[in-house]
Amino acid sequence: MISIDDLDRVLGWMLKDQLQALEVSEGNARIRLKMADRPGMPAPRVEAKVLARGLGRFLVAHPRSGEPALKVGDQVVAGGIVGFIQNDAVLLPIVSAHAGQVSEVHVAAGSLLGFGAPVLTLMVEP
């Protein structure tokens, strides 16, 4: 038998894992839970900003690589280099702490970055 406590627990899992519907079958019994429709609500996602950890000129790619600049919609991996800060002859990496999809690029190639300046906004999958 499925108790009210069981339903409560299952609902907790659904909320935690963002499930919209869950169906459980056992013998002839079947129970189906479905979240109330909330039309027009976007999928729940979280924004994260990638910040410059140094001062200098923004390079979209390593000068020896010739890779194209990141643009809105591109995927980045956690710990991945998303650009460089050029300080005279020295380069510092701009590293994304999260995996996600680029939703905004805040700085143009070659522009000057201050410490803590936002470089990208990512939509991070929760």
Partner: peptide, 9 residues
Amino acid sequence: PEGGMGAMP
């Protein structure tokens, strides 16, 4: 520094 650093060619 964290993440390392590089030199211009």
